[in-house]
Nucleic acid binder design. Structure first.
Lengths: 195, 195
DNA sequence: ATGTTACCGTAACGCCTGTTACGAATGGAG
DNA sequence: CTCCATTCGTAACAGGCGTTACGGTAACAT
């Protein structure tokens, strides 16, 4: 394997270690040593790959965005209709299983970390705006007769609902089972006339 | 002033200092020293009022719940109709101004801190369940003809939407102005038949 | 006025943090 | 085989953390 591929693969391993620590131990225990331990290496390697801790977190944050974008684009391509695409893409944004539940916790951890970090908050805003534009595009395709304003308003309702649902279910999975989440999504799409 | 009142007032001052640090500096800088500085005292006083840092955070978290409950009950009492009450209570859960925006940031900070803290997560779940029951009660009053299942599903849609809206607007207030938030809330209430 | 008690600021402790410096190992080039 | 560059583990550093111990001070009771 080439040197460049090695470096890239290590960056990926370390970013996944960041997610793992963030999901299992939370932001307060997200230290360079904890990440190194989760990645099975030492702090020396971490600090050779990244100039400092903030750069490590930023890389992990950006990689999280890329991974979810790939998954969402696959769902969108597989869907049989615009409305099916909209539903499938919104669905994966909730916390339906252990995998997506952990992603929600990681997501909230990055958001909490972004309060003090200018680069992290900028990344968060970029991603959120791209996400909103994606859902606006899917909503417009699912309801071609709607005005742009109607599309924007309904999109805002849909993205905030799935985001909030993920936060609730991540913090209390027993109280918000997957079936309830899906029923809620379907009834909301129906209420908006997107069923 | 009596001793007991003094102690209680100090606990309140310190809890407000916790919120202040959490809103302005984030979870990573939420140290005992930072809280003491924000409260205008020394770490000695903090550690005399609370046995440790976790107890301080838990008290601040519980007080946040009490304060918002009082505000919500006042809004509910002032409202002229069940539907007005539902709307007013949901409205204050979004991030419409600097005050509620900071509350959302504090809320997310506590949620991120709860990942590692059993007591904090238990408190969070208690509060969320009480919040859901409140909105279920208001929704049932606003639509008396609905079945319990319909009430539950719509309630879940409403609380997740406002929660998610608060998160989006707290992180990027420029992209999500108050008017858009309110329009989204009203159009969703209308879509559910609660306008 | 004096003794007693509660209060709380000061200073220190040990631990853990991010970061840096150095040296050993590794692997390709000549 | 030898040399050199790269890689990365080890160990240390200064600084900040939560927590503890101690001493002075102010308020109350007698």
């Amino acid at each position: 394997m080439s040197r460049a591929a090695d470096r890239s693969a290590q960056g990926e391993t370390l970013s996944r270690a960041v997610w793992s620590v963030l999901a299992e131990q939370g932001l307060e225990r997200l230290t360079v040593r904890a990440v190194a331990a989760a990645a099975g290496c030492t702090t020396g390697l971490v600090m050779h790959r990244f100039p400092n801790r903030r750069a490590l977190l930023l890389h992990a944050r950006q990689m999280l965005h890329r991974v979810t974008r790939v998954r969402v684009e696959a769902l969108e391509a597989e869907a049989g209709s615009p409305r099916a695409a909209l539903r499938a893409v919104l669905r994966q944004g909730m916390a339906l299983d252990e995998q997506t539940r952990q992603e929600s916790i990681v997501w909230m951890g990055f958001l909490a970390a972004a309060v003090t970090d200018e680069e992290l908050i900028a990344e968060h805003r970029r991603n959120n705006r791209a996400w909103r534009e994606r859902i606006e595009r899917l909503t417009a395709a699912a309801a071609p007769e709607w005005t742009a304003e109607r599309v924007a308003t309904v999109t805002l309702g849909l993205i905030t609902m799935t985001e909030g649902m993920a936060a609730y279910a991540a913090a209390d999975p027993a109280a918000f089972p997957a079936a309830d989440q899906e029923r809620m999504l379907d009834s909301t799409l129906a209420a908006y006339g997107l069923a």
